[in-house]
Computed example of a mutant assay.
Amino acid sequence: MAEGDAQTPGHEVVGLGREKIKGVFSTQSVAKVGTGTTQRRTIQKTYWSVEELPGDKVSVQPLNRNYVPSGPRRDIPKDEFLSKFNPEPEFYMTTVFPAIREMDDAVVRGEKNRERGAAYSAEFEFKRATSIDEENVRANFGLGLTYLDRGDQVKANDIFERLVTLEAAFQSEHKHLFNDFGINMRKNRMYDQALKYYLRAEELVQNDEHLFHNIARCYFEKGDIANCRKYLKKSLEVNPELKESKLFLEYLRKQGHLGPNGAENGSLNLD
């Protein structure tokens, strides 16, 4: 569901005579509790955030204990979905939507506080959002950037360890936050963390000249001229006109780190 979208789920019209499946749905399973003569069967209900995809597939994501979508998505055949999932429009309106709104509002307040330099107020709001969903990407990035702004590398590293495991953190919708976080880690001399972060992104992101450029910068800071050159080359192969990579390569050449044809020449001296 879109942020702030309070429409009744499961009834989004996308074309004449056709409705797209979207909203909160539930599944039920039977579990056995206890042993022997005290054993009994209970019905367990699980709630899901659901969106129909092209090709007769449906994407489902579980709701966490605070009733907001969290965790990995998976795609299932539409026929399987229709046979196992039940719509929960009233539960969405009374429980899920208010929880999502509370979380989103906390993130927005955190971002505004960070923009005006109120780091501790920003930290409070981002923590409030992560208490509702510890995997919320915007809240985690905001919290990490707030710690980097304060120069608190220990806490920033804790956030880094969480973000590097979240595939959602590297999706295109979060690209500006992803770039800011990596750049700020490098500026805080967290070179190993920044490099691990960028190399994780390389596994998940299609050819991105800016990502390759940032990896080259990290290798440069670590004194690894061979890999710096390798990733600058990859950056320029994707976009031969990327100004930053062209200037960086020319800088290396002027410093005597590259030969006239871009070949490595001597060792890198960062002093």
Rank of each mutant, 00 (worst) to 15 (best):
E3F: 08
G4H: 06
T8M: 12
G10F: 07
V13Q: 15
G15C: 07
L16G: 05
G17V: 05
G23P: 00
G23Y: 10
F25E: 11
S26D: 10
T27G: 09
T27K: 13
V30H: 09
G36W: 05
G36H: 05
T38E: 14
Q39I: 07
R40Q: 14
I43T: 15
T46E: 14
T46F: 04
Y47N: 05
Y47I: 13
W48V: 10
S49C: 13
G55V: 10
D56Y: 14
K57M: 15
L63H: 01
N64C: 07
N64V: 02
Y67I: 08
Y67G: 02
V68P: 00
P69R: 03
R73V: 13
I76T: 10
F81P: 00
F81L: 12
K84S: 14
F85Q: 00
F85C: 01
N86H: 13
P87D: 05
P87F: 04
P87M: 04
E88C: 06
E88D: 09
E90D: 14
F91H: 02
F91A: 03
F91Q: 06
Y92F: 15
T94F: 08
V96P: 00
I100Y: 07
R101N: 12
M103L: 15
V107K: 04
R109F: 09
E111T: 09
A119C: 09
Y120M: 08
S121V: 10
E125K: 11
K127D: 08
R128P: 09
T130D: 03
S131F: 14
E134Y: 15
E135P: 03
V137F: 05
R138E: 14
N140D: 09
F141T: 06
F141L: 09
F141R: 03
L143S: 04
L145I: 11
T146A: 03
T146I: 03
Y147S: 00
L148K: 00
G151S: 03
D152T: 10
Q153E: 14
V154Q: 09
A156K: 01
T165Y: 01
A168W: 13
H176W: 02
L177A: 11
F178S: 00
N179Y: 12
N179P: 00
R186K: 15
R186D: 07
N188S: 15
R189F: 06
D192N: 10
Q193P: 06
L199S: 06
A201G: 14
E202V: 04
E202H: 11
L204R: 08
V205Q: 05
V205P: 07
Q206S: 14
D208E: 09
E209F: 07
H210C: 01
H213I: 02
R217N: 11
C218L: 11
E221H: 06
D224H: 10
C228A: 11
K230W: 03
L232P: 01
K233C: 01
S235M: 05
V238N: 01
L242V: 02
K246N: 15
L247E: 15
L249H: 03
G256T: 03
P260S: 14
G262S: 07
E264Q: 11
G266Q: 12
S267I: 06
D271G: 13
